[in-house]
Every structure is written in structure tokens, then in C-alpha cells.
Design a protein around this nucleic acid. Structure first.
Lengths: 221, 221
DNA sequence: CGAGTTCCATGCGCGTTTTGATCGTCGAGG
DNA sequence: CCTCGACGATCAAAACGCGCATGGAACTCG
């Protein structure tokens, strides 16, 4: 999962990046509204963390522009604790969730996870496809009840596919969501990890759609 | 279920009351140690939330008095994030659980519930994972029945992991919960303590999930 | 002042990730 | 129905970086 942080205060920005990377996200960081808007418009993220108090362009403006452009990416807005006006304005501009500063990082992570889950249309923290279960809260995967050990990248890949169960996901899309900005686009890494996951969870978990990408279906239904 | 909150800071006090009432508790609020002590002694509660930093009479003193009077009501103590000394002193005075400020309201509710459940009967204040037992009340740890001497940091680290048994906990999360705000993010302290705990309690108590963090599982199930 | 604890720096080993090469397979067109 | 081309799967080995161990410095406490 790839996340954009728009935060002008350098320290907080760095801290946020560290936190989210620690939680397994690929993170891009923009330090002003201009940058933030550009990245948010051109790259593809699973969620955006947006601080409202930005220099140059105001955070609300950025959010508003994204929505006008048709960007649907879920946005979590950071506000000063007492500014209710910001909150109301943010609602109008299309924010999906709020967090008042200062906040606890776990709360941020929990909210983000919920946001991404909601955007994918899932209700619980557990994603299920056939015999495979992935718990986004504890970060664990089981196959027919048995715990399976996945490496960090394997987990990220599987997680993305399960969040988009039934959809055909292109290799490019996977690369974009698993890695951050600068990554060598032509390599067969994805294939390698698909192979590895299939080895651990069974051949038929991930279906190949030739020329288009991969898809994870739920055989249960 | 009836709960007493002893908290001098008006805002936090009100917030706590609202939270707990929302969770279905009957709530009394005392704003200083004097009041708190009196209410705790004369009324009957299922649990008490006690802030240590109080004017007039110190929270610890209040707690100590209750215990001398023979009050068995479970007490959850709120401490400033970094005052481990408070924690230790609190243990001696007979606190049943701790929460460092600032905390998540969900966590408070969860802990309170656990506290009440424990006090309600059978269960003890023990966290159990395999051969390892950690008594949150006495602060003692045993391995297969044998007492093990842990240092303060080792205890904190282990305690946090045991409170989140089964979850993958990132290094960042651990650092944030064990140290106060500004702490050198790139240092291998956590690794060092993990190693030390493993030396004392056995290699397989804490599982490493490469790239993500650590996890403590209960092999019993 | 000494014992114990906490923290930091360094180097190394090993699992993970990535690369590149090769093999297998599917599908279109002859 | 066969052949060829393109795409995907697989493998092995190299590169990388994480986490571990260790020893020592700084600090805290009695």
C-alpha cells in the first residue's frame, strides 16, 4: 500500500514517514501544497494524509482541486485540535477522516488502515479468499487455519490483491502500489513474488490474466 | 458497572467521563485527591481510574491509603509517558494496571474491561504466553514457574508485547511506547533488549518478522 | 566508588530482494 | 494442426540490507 503525506513541518513529516514505513507502507512525502497536489494528481496512492496548515496553497484548496479533478483517493486530514471550522470546511471539500493534532501514531495507523479497508469496500479487518485469510490488524496470514510465514514484500503484494479481490490488477499497478516513487519499472520482480506466494499458498490462489495482469478470486462464491 | 475517575485536569476529566459513559459505565468524577479518596473509600466502584499527578494529595498517596484501608477495588493508574519511577512506585502501592498519557480511549476501555473482568473473579493479573508468565500487578515474570529477573526496560518491552500478543509490533511502535517523545530513531536499542529478553526467556519467545517488527505468540494454541 | 543498567558503534552473517538467464506455455496465423 | 513469437514462470546466483552479537562508554543507583 502506498501513501502520500503532505506535511510542511519537516520534523513531523519525517516522523510520519518513519512511522508509516514501519507499518509497511510505501511512502512519498510532499512538503508543500504545490508538490502535494502534483503528486496526488499524477501518482496513484491508496490513501493521502493531508495537513491543512500549509504554506503557498492551503490544504483545503489542494483537497478541493483533487476532488474537482475526480480523484477518489481517500484523504485523512490533520487539523489543529480546536479548529472546528477547518473540520466543517474539510467535510465539504471531501475529506474522509480527521485526526486532531497532536495524535498518537497508532491512532493514525488504525485510521489509515480503516480508510483503505473502507475504500476497498471491506468491513472487517480480515480479508478472506477461499482458504486464505489475511488479518490486516495483526499482519498475519493463514491457509486453511494454518499460519503461513510471508516476507514483507510477499505480504504487501498479497494484501493489495486481496484488497482488490476479483479485480484484474496490472503489473504496473502492483509496482506503483508496493514501491514508492523511484523504482525501476521494468523488472520481473512481481512475477517472482507471485511465484513465491503461489508456492506458499497454492497455485490457484492467484490467477494470471495473460496480457493484463493478475487477479485474486474468491472461489467460495 | 460503576467507575470512579480521579483527574484534576478539567478537560481530560470531562473527556474521560464522556468516553466511559459512552461505553456504558456509571461514572463519578473527582477533581482532587481529597475528594477522590473520600469517594473511593465510601462508595463502591468496580474500578477506579487514578491520575498520579494530582494537586493537594498525590495520587500515590491516595492509592496507598485505600490499600491500607483494605480497599480491593482494581485501580488503573494514568502516568505521564516517561515517568517509569511513578510506575514502579505505583506497583508497590498496589495499582493493577497502567496507561501512559496520552493514550487512546479504546485502549483505556479495553484495559478497564479487563481489569473488571479480572477482579470479578477467577482470573489474575497475569499475562501468559507459553511458559512465560507476567504478573502486571506485582511486576514479576516467571519462566516455567521459575522467577526471572528483568530490568526495567526489558520488563517494559516484554509487557508491551504481551499486552499485544499475536500482533506484529513494529520497532517504531515499541520505541514510542517505551520511551518518551524525542528519542533517537536510528539506534538498535530495541534489538539489544530483544536479544537480552531472549537470553533470559528463551529464543523462541519473541518471533522476528523481518522488515516488519516483532511478534509474541502463544504456542499454547 | 562500585555494581548494574542503559545506550551506542561496529562488523558480520544470513535471509530477503533483485537481477538476469532460461525454460515453459499460450495463442495467433499460416 | 503445426510453427513461431511473445509473454509469463521458474531458477540460480549476486547484491543488498536487516537484525544480531559484542564490547565498551555513559549513566544511575545505592
Amino acid at each position: 500500500m502506498r501513501v502520500l503525506i503532505v506535511e510542511d513541518e519537516p520534523n513531523l513529516g519525517r516522523q510520519l514517514r518513519a512511522t508509516l514505513e514501519g507499518a509497511g507502507y510505501a511512502v512519498d512525502l510532499a512538503t508543500d501544497g504545490e508538490d502535494g497536489h502534483f503528486l496526488g494528481s499524477t501518482e496513484s496512492y491508496d490513501a493521502i494524509v493531508l495537513d491543512l496548515g500549509l504554506p503557498e496553497i492551503d490544504g483545503l484548496t489542494v483537497l478541493d482541486r483533487w476532488r474537482r479533478e475526480g480523484k477518489e483517493t481517500p484523504v485523512l486530514v490533520l487539523t489543529a485540535r480546536d479548529s472546528w471550522s477547518d473540520k466543517v470546511a474539510g467535510l465539504d471539500a471531501g475529506a474522509d477522516d480527521y485526526l486532531a493534532k497532536p495524535f498518537q501514531t497508532e491512532e493514525l495507523i488504525a485510521r489509515l488502515r480503516a480508510l483503505i479497508r473502507r475504500a476497498a469496500g471491506n468491513a472487517s479487518s480480515e480479508l478472506i479468499a477461499g482458504d486464505v485469510r489475511l488479518d490486516t490488524r495483526s499482519g498475519k496470514v493463514t491457509l486453511a487455519g494454518e499460519p503461513v510465514k510471508l516476507t514483507a514484500q510477499e505480504y504487501k503484494l498479497l494484501s493489495y490483491l486481496m484488497h482488490h479481490k476479483g479485480k484484474v490488477v496490472s503489473r504496473t499497478e502492483l509496482i506503483e502500489h508496493i514501491y514508492d516513487q523511484d523504482f525501476d519499472r521494468d523488472s520481473n520482480t512481481i512475477e517472482v513474488f507471485v511465484t513465491r506466494i503461489r508456492k506458499k499458498l497454492g497455485q490457484d490462489v492467484i490467477t494470471t490474466i495473460r496480457g493484463l495482469g493478475y487477479s485474486l478470486d474468491d472461489p467460495a462464491r
